[in-house]
Amino acid sequence: MFTIKAHNISKRYTYRLFSNISFTVSTGQSIAIVGPNGSGKSTLLKIIGSIVFPDTGSVEYFNHQDAIPAGNVFHYTGIVAPYIQCYNQLTLTENINFAFGAVTQDAITLIKRLDLYQHKDRMLHTYSTGMLQRAKIAMALLKKPPVLLLDEPGSNMDEYGRTILFEIIKEISSHTAIVVATNDSREANICQRSINLATSVVA
């Protein structure tokens, strides 16, 4: 059981993004972060992922009862976001080998499901943006993380890709804590709860 507890998180750059956001998300739960453009959805996701620090408030991470230091959170998270890219000068097979040491049967099954198997030996810089997104999703899921952070996961993907993505999210939702930052109502609707940054309401 992995739990993320956020207490009164606030963040501002030159203007206030959001303030006093509190929520808890555990394994088997999912939460969507919604709000208009510029409301801080990606920033809140970065704070949850310990990529960016909040101005006020704190985020705590627990693996069962053990507190996890913020510096070690990356070991437990899979992140799909526009600001995280796989190595474009490597093939998908080489990226998988780099991250996991070997291309396992699980990896082959997943990349087949994401319709990337026939492209696995092409360098990623030859991929379309939709294929790159699928590659990023594959890399994050192959880690089998207890926490999955998704920032606009369906962006640039076709209808087939989105359908597969939603199916996979449903399948892993029982053993994963999922946080999705999105403007897409379909992506938000696969989550059990949502945080609206325009109103700071957790529903």
Partner: peptide, 11 residues
Amino acid sequence: EENTALFNLMY
């Protein structure tokens, strides 16, 4: 520049 630093840190 290529946004791969966080990707590397994930693993």
